[in-house]
Design a protein around this nucleic acid. Sequence first.
RNA 1: GCCGGCGUAGCUCAGUCGGUAGAGCAACUCACUUGUAAUGAGUAGGUCGCCGGUUCGACUCCGGCCGCCGGCUCCA
Length: 603
Amino acid sequence: MAGEGESIWRDEGTLNMEMTGATGAAFAEDQDTFWHTTTHIMAQAVCRLFPSARYAIGPTIEAGFYYDFDLGRNFLPEDLEKIEAEMRKIVEENHTVEHMLWTKPEAAEFFEKRGQMFKVELIQGLPEGKVSIYRQGEFTDLCRGPHLKRTGLVRHFKLLSFSGCYWRANDKGPKLQRIYGISYQDTKMLTEFVRRREEAEKRDHRRLGVELDLFSMDETLGGGLVLYHPKGSAMRAVIEDFLKRAHRKLGYEYIYSPHMANANLWKISGHYENYKENMYFTQIEEQEFGIKPMNCPFHIQVYRSHLRSYRELPIRYFELGTVYRFERSGVLHGLLRVRGFTQDDAHIFCREDQLTGEIERVLDFVRSVLRLFGFSYTVGVGTRPEKYMGDPALWDRATAALRAALEARQMAYEMHEGDGAFYGPKIDVALKDALGRSWQGPTIQVDFNLPQRFELEYVGEGGDRKCPVMIHRAILGSLERFIGCLIEHYAGDFPLWLAPVQARVIAVAESAAGAYSREVLDQLRASDVRADSDNREETLGKRIRAAELEKIPVIAVLGEREAQGRSVNVRRRGKKDQEVLSLTEFVERMRRESATPDGAIEL
RNA sequence: GCCGGCGUAGCUCAGUCGGUAGAGCAACUCACUUGUAAUGAGUAGGUCGCCGGUUCGACUCCGGCCGCCGGCUCCA
């Protein structure tokens, strides 16, 4: 709602919509206003075409806007065209956008008379005082604004999609229809937006997963379960190898634990009470077993296996732990949201005075790994949720420790109230996919609760028994989600060390270099390079093209010249110009450049 | 789960008014023996997602189910 002195509209004179010269906040705000007015134009068009339509809310989003309607029937694809046509008319008519302040009863009466019950409900939820109303032509809407001054300023727009949704996101409430759209002042920006969207679709990991033969999902298996093909498995193995080395260097000990456990374990841990709806259970010899949704209780049991001294702490257990969680079928999404996944999970048991230091070490670890992969990310701190266990005072201490570590490392973060795990607050790091959607990857959680529930202890300096604190943490999050993000991040053009096939050996013709090509392949493999060959009876051009489409980083072409001179003609992915190296030098270079980073984390 | 859309060969897709399906790529065979992004000819490949209904007859129409895709948080 607009208050005294706030801007209630923007004219073309104050708009700063040019891509060049527009700076951060001002640009974003003007863009927002532009989109907001566009969504009103869309609502106006819908109301003209569907006079009985009731309009609900129409906010702007990160890219564009939407508006929710109840119109008694579903939208059809051809409706979007009709609505766009009507919107063009409204732009052409160039209505002045009027701003008014009404009393709540006035506004409620106005919308009630017109059957706009959603607006009436919104008005009732507003604080006492005047409510802000905007009107353009025959269309009147409750809206905080600001808006453009005239509808004629919205020149280039496009309706993108429609889908079902609910009033106030409540699946028991009224069902609505939502239309998404985008608009720009400049036609070039609109074209650019559409182009970028198409570009992003090409990076989609589900599409590249098929094209590059990395993984698949199979309805016969069930939703959310991943089959890694040989090439996807090769990548995963590289990442696992990297993780194991990095953890070893940072003082973690690698362990294994089973995939399921007696329900009694889950009762002690609190999962039975707080996480049951996400778990799979099975009955064996009248005993109930739960498949693990988390690894923590197992690591705790390893800690408990004998008495610990304060001198041993911190103890850091690391596992590539495969867990299963029930997720509602509608939320599954390629590799980015699955039901079975493997976490690069670790649990650190330490004294409370070691807590902040340990969190800082984990933050450094996360940052250096994300830097290695070139990811950008955002950081949030999730606090105590509704369903929690333990003493709120401990929660506060845990949250304070997380924030202190972030501040010590000067990392910007947002507070996400109520977003913590049921046993403790957490730092979440979000990575973005090709379409700009955020996915939680790395996470750091402080837990005073499970150590108490499992009655963990260590012998202190004075011989007294004390309870350690636990940190649950994952660096990548899950391998599935991370690999999905990685595919989109690199658009399948993986750096040499990650590429499933690092080099392909191609003999120009069997007669010219067949035997030599097999020797080159053997030498590469002997040097731990992931290499294969393509000596099919196809033209060289066709085999080069196939290798380029498979995004193989290095192509070694061998003909009579190379066989005679024991050399290799090297073509790098996407580059036409080639380089000739001696066989020895080629193999040595490949060995060096294609090796997995040794896990030496720069702290 | 809910709302909407979609489901035809390994992949991308065509298939008119209801008369049991077709192309390109990939695969395979043969010829060519190839010098940096598609050589030519041929062969094979389908319970049209599954189940039921209507019909003389269903990829097509109707119902149910399964799966996939988008959305269901970003507060007038």
